[in-house]
């Protein structure tokens, strides 16, 4: 009798558990759907013709899939008076982002290595100042930065934008590497010193080979920041050096007459693709790298 009662109770609680689990999955699924909705609308809209957009439903699938909008967006859409699509701007962004990411990551690694392993008088103050830089809003530095770029003679050029992004990224890249390197025992540096290795030798032979997870984190972070940047891009560029975010804005905001939603959507997706790709390729390292150090034995 009691056995039976108990087993029923256990059975009920098991059913309850399963139901709870399903409820959880359904809730999560709904959230995921909600988050994916805009992407869905963007993709379907970009594959529709203007005619279909005007007559059809926002969330319906395209009756006839066409890549015309993508072609227009890439090669012939007008950004103001110029009608070459986003292609030149896409390459501008690549030319800005790739060197800026590489340089800021490398300098950040060196900075982090110094702050974590080669403490000098005032190194904590130096690190605090760098950290402070992370929290200065972009808008505050616009005017001084414009003046500096002018003095350097790189105003409106791609090297100028690279410079801005490197400077602005250093706070974060240093923070990432410093926190990673601080968990590496200082005895390693000491052992290498006794072995006869110098500052750069130790960095190159011992610290960099250990750094893959944090390099991935930094590259993803920096690439996303720099690629998606609009404010610096619009402030410190001129015709011919504008990044893709500026072009996207121009295409969407400066068209006259009929709004070509399909082209707008295609442009937006093109502008977002590289960061998406970087995250998909290196995402698992991103999570791993963020939690590294805390679990390293």
């Amino acid at each position: 009798m009691t056995d039976l009662a108990m087993s029923t109770a256990r059975g009920q609680s098991r059913i309850g558990k399963v139901a709870l689990r399903w409820l959880l999955y359904i809730a999560l699924g709904l959230f995921a759907l909600y988050y994916l909705m805009p992407l869905f609308v963007m993709i379907t809209t970009s594959l529709k013709s203007l005619e279909e957009i005007r007559t059809g439903d926002l969330i319906s699938l395209p009756r006839e899939v066409t890549f015309d909008a993508w072609k227009t967006a890439w090669a012939t859409a007008c950004t103001g008076i110029q009608c070459e699509g986003v292609r030149p701007f896409f390459w501008n962004s690549v030319l800005i982002a790739v060197p800026a990411v590489m340089i800021s990551t490398l300098i950040g690694a060196l900075n982090g290595y110094v702050v974590a392993q080669w403490q000098f008088r005032g190194s904590n103050l130096f690190f605090a100042a760098l950290l402070f830089g992370c929290f200065i809003p972009f808008q505050v530095v616009l005017l001084p930065m414009a003046r500096v770029l002018g003095l350097m003679g790189v105003a409106g050029t791609i090297p100028g934008l690279i410079f801005v992004h490197v400077i602005y990224g250093l706070g974060f890249t240093t923070l990432f590497f410093r926190n990673y390197y601080v968990s590496i025992p200082s005895e390693l540096t000491k052992a290498a010193k006794v072995d006869g290795a110098g500052f750069f030798r130790i960095f190159w032979s011992i610290f960099l080979p250990l750094s893959l997870p944090i390099i991935v984190v930094t590259v993803i972070w920096q690439f996303t920041q720099i690629w998606n940047d609009f404010l610096f891009g619009v402030s410190f560029s001129q015709a011919g050096t504008q990044p893709i975010t500026v072009a996207l804005n121009n295409i969407v905001n400066s068209t006259t007459g009929v709004k070509e939603y399909n082209v707008d959507m295609a442009t937006a997706i093109i502008a977002a693709l590289p960061t998406l790709l970087v995250y998909v390729v290196a995402g698992k390292y991103f999570i791993r790298g963020l939690t590294a150090g805390s679990v390293k034995g």
């Binding site: 025992p185 005895e187 390693l188 000491k190 052992a191 010193k193 006794v194 290795a197 032979s205 250990l210």
Partner: peptide, 20 residues
Amino acid sequence: VSPKDRDIAMVFQSYALYPT
């Protein structure tokens, strides 16, 4: 004189082997 020129060798508590 810097450590590398002292003609010494050292064994550390954590061994400090180069992990990679």
